[in-house]
Amino acid sequence: MSRELKGWKDIPIAGVCWKPATEYLTGDWKTFKPIHDPEKCTKCLLCSLICPDSAIKWNQANEELMFDYDFCKGCGICANECPADAIKMVREGEG
């Protein structure tokens, strides 16, 4: 990830952070990605609650789950825990 490196005069003192982690995408870490089956999904939201990366988002407006592949690291916890068997892990590029 290329980025501009600043000089000591141009950064805050004491190591105060100046970028949100949400600008650092971790989605390219994964080998497997979760595929969500809305038909099977009961919208219990367990997957969203237990995702270590807050990558399963709940759209309040249309009451839908959205998988954010920019951050999903492909751990597969969601698929393992889904009580409705509504999430499958597939190899990246095959989904």
Partner: peptide, 12 residues
């Protein structure tokens, strides 16, 4: 004031 991570100057 320092530049924080929310893109604005904030108290240190």
């Amino acid at each position: 004031q320092v530049m924080g991570h929310e893109g604005r100057e904030v108290p240190f």
